[in-house]
Design a protein around this nucleic acid. Structure first.
Length: 569
RNA sequence: UGCCCGAUAGUGUAAUUGGCAACACGACAGAUUCUGACUCUGUUAUUCUAGGUUCAAGUCCUAGUCGGGCAGCCA
């Protein structure tokens, strides 16, 4: 085999840096005979968004690729912010994305074990009960450049710590009055190691453990230990936890338990989008959107309702890669993945968004012909359907211009255009509203020798879509556009916030004329309105026989681009 | 004036770990088209800076620049 042959055949599999580390790790004695074990660990305090999708695809994808396992674990250590509603939505979203967890756990499943381990650290002289107030604790911690001071309670006896900690659990002390802290190093350059808090006293009803506990573990104390209990081999998280890794390691080592390896990657940023749960919550609470599943939201549920496919989101996550560099992906990449998939799976249909009446003056008054239309040129299996054609039609207002530039290949006075699956027509007369001058009707003649499928001698540059006026149905269509006008919505001017960067026209509701078959389609159906874009029947607001269409994404439009550049002439 | 991390075409990600810098998307030009869609062809452009080691550096060393993270009893 020569070099060229080898080069064209060998599909070089490119590993991202996490895969490389994993493959290296499995050479180690520690992992001999084991399989990869990952987990997706969301906090149930909000809905999942596209950034989570990256993490989900990574963790579940890795498990699939290496024949390992991936658990879903709710990081529910802060009952004041967490709710069952979020637990339910997260499970639904993970499944919708196409993944199934090997085991479902909650950090709260481990509260008893965590408590036992805390006792162990106390007995080993590695943890102590601290009576400092929150403000004092902050004060004692020092700053980024100055070391902290040791707490006056740092050297309590083991017996006293044991007694106090048990009484913390028993509810003898008010909220916030005491903490259990790991005894590490108040002068550590890494702030996380300055005697981090392990437990706080907090009386809040927990969605799963109810009122059993009045002390709750902190993230650092709960997360790594939960990973350890589950036998996780690789704990993959985002970059902001990089500084926590030494603490993650410290707990595992000092407890002498299974020690997973934490690896961090850069979270996803998308242009024209906000991604923090806090900001998304604000959009919902202040009613800038209709809810977490508003089709403009970058949440999984929002995308689902909008009409995105799980395949396109998975493909997107694959395409953007994974690294440690903090980057922003152009939202156009996501839209590109969407179009790529929808192009293959969505049936084509006729729908006129902004109708303009066309009368074919030489077409018989009562005649109706059925025209055969291809459902999906990308998929022969999708078959064909019959479209009614008659004397009065609607076309798109955009497809007619009285004073058209040279490159306008659509209908203009005296000009010819093909009606998709119909005839070639020629524009004879323009009817205007005498008062406003607005074009209200266009009169054309049709050429009976040009019916779709016939051999036609002449070339017509443009083809436009249409619906038969008497057969068309009126439906509500929601035209969605990006929620924010600026590429980075977080960058707001002095005294402003990301809310000020919202796009006032992110939703336009119109009524469109569509071919009759559309009113019978079930909610969730995705179709392509030819020459317009992809649309999905809204699963919340549609009624039987009365679908509401959400615009998922427009088609690429090189004509619009030409116009924008002023090159249409 | 601390600690940690990062920097490769416009964007994002690779480079057999020291051996000819590549892939995807975009942009641009063209072909095709009963969707100005899809598809196809072609073009474009890349190693943060300065030194050093080496036959050879995106990769190793030194110094710098720029960007990000960290001072919750949040995760």
């Amino acid at each position: 085999m020569d070099k060229n042959e080898q080069g064209s055949e060998a599909k070089v599999e490119r590993l991202n840096f996490i895969e490389q580390e994993i493959e290296k790790d499995f050479q180690l004695p520690k992992l001999q005979g084991k399989t990869l074990a990952t987990r997706f660990p969301p906090e149930p305090n909000g809905y999942l968004h596209i950034g989570h999708a990256k993490s989900i695809c990574l963790n579940f994808g890795l498990a699939k690729k290496y024949g390992g396992t991936c658990n879903l674990r709710f990081d529910d250590t802060n009952p004041s912010k967490e709710e069952q509603e979020y637990v339910d939505s997260i499970q639904e979203d993970v499944r919708w994305l196409g993944f199934e967890w090997d085991a479902l756990w909650y950090a709260s499943d481990y509260f008893d074990q965590l408590y036992e381990w805390a006792l162990q650290l106390i007995r080993d002289g590695k943890a102590y009960v601290c009576d400092l107030t929150p403000a004092e604790t902050r004060d004692y911690r020092g700053t980024l450049t100055a070391p902290g001071k040791e707490s006056p309670y740092r050297n309590r006896s083991v017996a006293e710590n044991l007694d106090l900690f048990e009484r913390m659990r028993a509810g003898e002390f008010p909220d916030g009055s005491r903490t259990l802290r790991a005894k590490i190093d108040m002068a550590a350059p890494n702030m996380n190691l300055r005697d981090p808090v392990m437990y706080r006293v907090l009386r809040a009803h927990h969605h799963r453990t109810g009122d059993k506990w009045c002390i709750y573990p902190m993230y650092d104390w709960a997360h790594g230990q939960s990973d350890s209990i589950e036998g996780i081999t690789h704990s993959i998280c985002t970059l902001e936890f990089e500084d926590h890794r030494p603490l993650y390691n410290w707990f595992c080592e000092n407890l002498g338990i299974w020690h997973p390896r934490q690896i961090e990657f850069a979270r996803l940023n998308l242009s024209y989008t906000v991604m923090s749960k806090r900001k998304l919550l604000q959009l919902v609470q202040e009613k800038h959107v209709s809810g977490w599943d508003d089709p403009r939201m970058p949440t999984i549920s929002g995308f689902r309702r909008r009409g995105y496919t799980p395949e396109s989101i998975r493909n997107f996550c694959d395409r953007i890669g994974v690294a440690k560099f903090y980057s922003t992906i152009d939202v156009g990449v996501l839209e590109g993945c969407l179009r790529e998939h929808l192009n293959v799976v969505a049936n084509r249909v006729m729908a006129v968004l902004n109708p303009l009446k066309v009368v074919l003056t030489n077409y018989p008054e009562e005649q109706v012909e059925m025209m055969e239309a291809i459902n999906n040129p990308e998929d022969p299996q999708a078959g064909t359907r019959q479209l009614p054609f008659s004397r009065e039609l609607y076309i798109e207002q955009e497809d007619f211009m009285e004073d058209a530039p040279r490159k306008f290949f659509r209908l203009k006075p005296g000009g010819e255009v093909r009606l998709r699956y119909g005839y070639i027509i020629q524009c004879q007369e323009v009817v205007k509203d005498p008062s406003s001058g607005e074009v209200i009707e266009v009169h054309c003649t049709y050429d009976p020798q040009t019916r779709s499928g016939m051999q036609v001698d002449r070339k017509v540059k443009g083809t436009i879509h249409w619906v038969s006026a008497q057969h068309a149905k009126d439906v509500e269509v929601r035209l969605y556009d990006r929620l924010f006008l600026s590429e980075n919505p977080e960058e707001a001017g002095e005294g402003k916030s990301f809310i000020d960067n919202m796009n006032p026209d992110s939703l336009t509701v119109i009524h469109a004329k569509v071919e009759p078959s559309l009113v019978e389609l079930p909610a969730g159906t995705r179709v392509q309105f030819e020459r317009n874009g992809y649309f999905c029947i809204d699963s919340v607001d549609s009624q039987p026989g009365q679908p509401v269409f959400n615009r998922i994404v427009t088609l690429r439009d090189s004509w619009a681009k030409l116009q924008a550049k002023g090159q249409a002439d």
